[in-house]
Nucleic acid binder design. Sequence first.
DNA 1: TACGTAGATCGATGCCCGTCGATCTCGAGC
DNA 2: GCTCGAGATCGACGGGCATCGATCTACGTA
Lengths: 118, 118
Amino acid sequence: MPVDLELTPKQKRPPGEPCCEPVVYPAVERAEAERMATVAKALADPVRLQLVDVLRQHAGEVCVCELTPLFDVGQPTVSHHLKVLRQAGVVDSVRRGLWAYYYVRPEALEALSRWLSR
Amino acid sequence: MPVDLELTPKQKRPPGEPCCEPVVYPAVERAEAERMATVAKALADPVRLQLVDVLRQHAGEVCVCELTPLFDVGQPTVSHHLKVLRQAGVVDSVRRGLWAYYYVRPEALEALSRWLSR
DNA sequence: TACGTAGATCGATGCCCGTCGATCTCGAGC
DNA sequence: GCTCGAGATCGACGGGCATCGATCTACGTA
């Protein structure tokens, strides 16, 4: 299912013995690979990974004004990283009065986590 | 240890009640976060994630000529992705005669895997 | 020695990403 | 209504990334 078997028959077997036994097609199909790659991309920056790390230690929500001073990048940059994480589904946020609170959505990490520890 | 406590005192407490209880500093320090982010970045592309997926299914080595036809990108692109994965330490390769064989280095995935399933 | 083939490298192209300073939005309190 | 502050957005800049076609390298075979 992952890849059409007949789509790419452009590979000729070499003349002598084969280089190896035939491979198995990816167990993870394309759509699922794209979902997991999206989450991996969201974690592919040290600041974002540490942001998620802090949020995961707090079962509840964390205010952005507590998050910003933890990193040596500016406030707009932290806000940008939080947006990237939110668009990847890794975190979500609530606004209450002046403050914005962020929290991790653990289910977003599950697929990648399970695939990695397979 | 993650961040100098006195380095960023630029945050003033709001006048009323605090927005939330003080946060914990990242459990993952910067250097470790960078290492994990590097691995995450290597997995942050669907083709590379599927490449690793195929390689993980084969305990041993897999020839590139078997890998290339699995994806609908050109041979130079597959070669490039394998190089990215190798530079991130996720895979390694051996050359035997005409063929190059790639294999996963499972220890490279361990830190990220354990952090994710924490 | 000459040729064919596996796979790496090169150079170009177009797009995306991290960061910044500046600005905008909107709720709170006077 | 005015002001202040938290945080989101904007525009710009510099660097990196995915992909391609073309080429290069090195090994096997005749």
